Computed example of a mutant assay.
Amino acid sequence: MSATSLPEQKKVLRARLRRLRREVAATRGEELAARAHAHLLASPLWRQARSVALYVSLPDELDTAPLLDAAWQAGKTLYLPRVRQQYGLMDFVAVGGRDELRPGPFQLLEPLDSLPGFGPDAAGAAFRPDIFIVPGLAFDRQGRRLGFGGGYYDRFLSGVRAQGGDAGPRPFVGLCFHCQLQDALPAEPWDERMTHICTDREWLCL
């Protein structure tokens, strides 16, 4: 077993994967994102979903803008995250178009403050999207996710799983460039796992 602690392993991985992601996004980002979009949009999970929890991508992430447009054009209810930085939490907000977004923390566009949001405690009742599409610096073939270090998604998705009820868990889809898909990632007990991974090369059901 490595003497390096899990937090230190994650720190090193995050630095390496950020560099790799920036390089790929700058050189082939648009082409590879289009391939990943095709895999996701062709999947039964997306086609059958009436509501989708998505996110607005960072400049060097796999671009999600075409997915936002696809959801709106198909008449799906689209939920986007809004960070509550002072509490270390986030909520999800039903957004009807880009005019309902404004600049938020972490260089992200977020739903307007005036719009009602749902926390994980609402999962299974008022808030139950048919599919969650989740960002990450990396994913592995067992569904593990390496996030950005803030814990926002792990806390939220843990609450969603806890509120799953009789209807069972929701599909959690990790979306990334294929270079971000690893054979194995260091994991801690609170790290939430994906049920599917979507890259520019593969659609994995786990």
Rank of each mutant, 00 (worst) to 15 (best):
S158D: 15
V52M: 10
R35C: 02
A26H: 07
R170K: 12
R170N: 11
L101Q: 12
P135Q: 08
G149N: 10
A38M: 04
H39N: 12
R19K: 07
L45H: 04
E8R: 11
F177N: 06
L146G: 06
L41K: 00
R161V: 13
A138C: 02
K10E: 04
R161H: 12
L115G: 07
A94P: 09
T77N: 01
L40P: 01
F156I: 09
G104N: 02
R102W: 05
A122M: 07
G75A: 04
L175G: 00
A15I: 10
D191G: 05
L204P: 10
E23K: 13
L68R: 06
V83W: 11
A26K: 11
L137W: 01
D183R: 12
L54D: 10
E110Y: 13
D113C: 05
H37P: 00
P111M: 04
P66N: 14
R22V: 11
G117K: 09
E110K: 15
M1S: 14
P105Q: 09
L89G: 02
F127M: 05
P59F: 13
G136W: 02
W203E: 08
V56K: 01
P111N: 09
G124P: 02
L45T: 01
F156Y: 15
G159R: 09
E31T: 08
G164P: 01
R128H: 12
I133D: 03
G143A: 02
P171I: 06
A38D: 10
G136N: 08
E192F: 00
R144P: 02
G168S: 04
A15H: 13
F118S: 05
S158R: 14
Q9L: 13
V160D: 14
L6E: 03
D113P: 04
L146I: 08
A71L: 03
M194P: 15
T27I: 09
E188Y: 11
T4Y: 05
L68W: 05
T64Q: 10
P186A: 09
R170F: 13
S158H: 14
H178Q: 11
R201F: 11
L204Y: 08
Q86N: 01
G124C: 04
A70Y: 06
C179M: 03
R201D: 12
A94H: 11
Q9T: 13
L17Q: 15
R141G: 00
M90F: 07
S5P: 02
Y79Q: 10
G119L: 00
I131R: 07
R21T: 00
L78T: 13
G164H: 12
G117T: 10
L185S: 05
